[in-house]
Amino acid sequence: MTPAIRVRHLWHRFGAFDVLRDVTFDVGRGEIFGFIGPNGAGKTTTIRVMATLLEPTAGRVEIDGVDVMRDPESVRRSIGYMPDHAGIYERVTVREYLEFFAEAYRVPPASVVDAVLELTDLGRISDKVVVTMSKGQKQRLQLARVLLHDPKVLILDEPASDLDPRARIEMRNLLLDLRGLGKTILLSSHILTELSDVCTSVAILERGQLVVAGPIAEIASRFEARRAGAPQGAPEIGGASAAAVAVPQAPRRRVKLRVVGAPEAASAALSTAPGVVEVELAGGYVYATYEGPESVVAHIVAHLVHAGVGILGVEQERNELERIFLEATRGEMQ
């Protein structure tokens, strides 16, 4: 089965500046794919090519097996694209807004609008005028719009960027529901935490170049293996051979500690603990970054106990995505 999205050797140039340089990756069917990169990395540019809105300088993109340059009309029928910071007509109601797009897509408005309203949980406010809605509600309305024609692939550019934590959680749940309906979802972000627990695969883009791409677990284990000192050629990641990234030999992780008394005392003790490379204090907690296997935590705890620090709690920070991101981009960032 062909992947839902195939991006091959994508180059794009604005003026004299190569915004995309040979970007290649796949998005498998039924995945929630995180497209991650700092501001200006080229995420939106790549996404606009996928959405048939921009013709790249070179390279090819296929959505559901159809070349976006060759047959943009049928690609448009199979994608739902939500631009970043897009506007909504302000003086229409939720229902009128959706009915307009349903008619524009030539789908029967009556049945489809109700279905979409229910799915996105906007049914209760369907007669509200858009201008009076909250950001989170507007964002859900945008998502409702791109669902009207029942596309197979959803392409969402920064869907959660302006949302408060609660709206973000609602959005996340909605995305999981949509995945349950068999949709493939590509979403871009520069905030890692907003994605970490829904994404199944990621691509990390930096300055127009792909750093790494693939299923999260696979990338993590590959990094792990490389750290363990396995001899390495050019890593083959998602068809991209461009990921010539300086991967550090030792993995870094963080533990969050809650201690009895002033955290400063614990901090001082920690700085001499084995394996610890960095100590931070925040919100009454002590965060220790260490190198090496997870068993180092046991040594840290022993060290603290030995130093007379009472420990109330130890929590391993398990944000795989964040770790991958930090490690993969370290070469560029330093």
Partner: peptide, 13 residues
């Protein structure tokens, strides 16, 4: 200007 244009174009109208 209001960034509502792309959505209209992509409907295939």
């Amino acid at each position: 200007e209001g960034r509502t244009w792309e959505a209209v174009v992509l409907t295939g109208m």
